[in-house]
Design a protein around this nucleic acid. Structure first.
Length: 413
DNA sequence: TTTCCACCGGAAAATGAGGTCC
DNA sequence: GGACCTCATTTTCCGGTGGAAA
């Protein structure tokens, strides 16, 4: 065993000892995660009552109107919806009131076909991953609903993601279930972060989906503070969170769209930092560290999960940046460098069209910054790019890559 | 006012890998 | 086994763009 092995052994022992024998501040960390639904939801009494009243028509087997829920991310739309539906399911257990329920996150599902498959799976109908036309899959779902003879409640979360990409065909078919000869009673609850997608809906779908609406306003910093204290009591042991730390986490999240999830993330990551350091109290400094850490981890994770050619573009830009070339790199020059790099790992470069698409994606992800300058008849329009994140982060994420890491590591040094 | 440059990006088609159905 | 399906990725084609130069 050499001296390096001894050093690593000491570090690892220290980390494990701290985890096993060090002070503990978390009582139940799970309550700080996004999918946890608390027993009470603060500042959402009005929305809870409205949704609960709306759902009563369904359990009475009455034809009912659909519902559209709108609000910024982290304002409690999904939590309130799942909370009220869970309460209703508990309430009707053992009674004659019955309905079948399906929850689908349209952004995660991705395509119309998969939204139908998620709905089918959750009501006990097996559909293949692929091989059927979307129309055939929907017909099978519809026939299954006819056989079940129970009202059908479907929650389409992030429904805007589906509409923007595939149009409103599926939504139209779902809204028509109530009006054809099949005798199905169906209620659609659409949840969206973005009201603008309604402009893309067919007027018939729009009027059907927006019969009732519930708006979720962003939480204020004061409300976020109370929500945090409510959750802290469940998540941490007594006297392990400083009052100032909670105020700061609430203020940061309040200034960023009143996002409660962000506030919970800050407290959770700050708690993890305190435990890793062997400390026993979360302070404002830990919240600041958590804020930087979340940002940094997000960037690293985004770059790690990018496809190979996006990483090659980043690699080419990195090499040109550290190579002392201009602060901003021309996109056409970057394409040449990227093409050379792909050749070095035995790959063919993608077309310039595809290259521009990937560059646009990197810009939207906040990894590179694009600027368009115009040099007129002689120079034309020129797009230049530079990194929008620290070069140390770029290097760290690229050298970890099994394919291009080895290739680039020699050039880095 | 028109021309020209160097891209940029929408639309449609191609491709290939997964699958079902008859 | 062949016809047909979805889906993600990529290519091809081509019109649009803004502003300096002609």
């Amino acid at each position: 065993m050499n001296s390096d092995d001894n050093n690593y052994s000491d570090i690892i022992d220290e980390i494990f000892d701290r985890a096993i024998y060090g002070p503990k501040i978390f009582k139940n960390k799970l309550v700080l995660f996004h999918d946890y639904i608390p027993k009470r939801l603060l500042f959402r009494e009005e929305q809870i009552s409205k949704l609960a009243r709306h759902l009563t028509t369904l359990i009475k087997h009455q034809r009912t109107s659909n519902l559209f829920i709108y609000g910024k991310p982290g304002t409690g739309k999904t939590a309130v919806t799942r909370y009220v539906i869970n309460r209703l399911l508990e309430k009707i257990k053992g009674t004659d009131f019955k309905f079948i329920f399906s929850y689908v996150n349209c952004r995660l599902a991705g395509t119309e076909y998969r939204v139908i498959k998620y709905m089918a799976d959750s009501i006990g109908l097996k559909l293949p991953f692929t091989g059927l036309s979307t129309e055939e899959a929907f017909n099978r779902l519809k026939n299954h609903l006819v056989n079940l003879k129970k009202p059908f409640l479907v929650v389409l979360d992030e429904v805007d993601a589906l509409i923007i990409r595939y149009g409103d065909n599926l939504l139209y078919s779902l809204t028509r279930l109530n009006y054809d000869e099949s005798d199905i009673i169906a209620m659609i609850i659409g949840i969206s972060n973005d009201l603008r997608f309604k402009e893309m809906l067919d007027p018939r779908v729009l009027s059907s989906l927006s019969e009732e609406e519930i708006i979720f306003k962003p939480y204020t910093a004061t409300e976020l503070e109370q929500i945090l204290w409510d959750r802290i009591q469940l998540a941490f042991f007594d006297n392990t969170v400083d009052q100032g730390a909670v105020k700061l986490a609430a203020a940061i999240s309040g200034s960023e769209n009143g996002d409660a999830r962000k506030a919970l993330d800050l407290i959770r990551v700050a708690g993890e930092i305190v435990e890793a350091q062997g400390g026993n109290k979360i302070t404002t400094d830990h919240i600041k560290m958590a804020y930087n850490s979340i940002d940094r981890e997000r960037t690293l994770e985004v770059i790690r999960t990018l496809p190979l050619h996006s990483k090659l573009i980043i690699g080419a830009l990195y090499l040109m940046t550290i190579g002392g070339q201009n602060n901003r790199i021309k996109s056409s020059v970057l394409y040449q460098k990227y093409s050379l790099l792909t050749g070095e790992i035995g790959e063919s470069p993608l077309s310039s069209r595809r290259f521009y698409s990937l560059l646009t994606e990197l810009s939207l992800l906040g990894i590179v910054n694009r600027r368009i300058d115009n040099y007129g008849r002689r120079g034309g329009r020129v797009t230049t790019v530079k990194f929008d994140v620290p070069l140390t982060l770029i290097k760290k994420s690229l050298v970890e890559d099994p394919i291009i890491g080895d290739l680039l590591i020699n050039k880095f040094d």
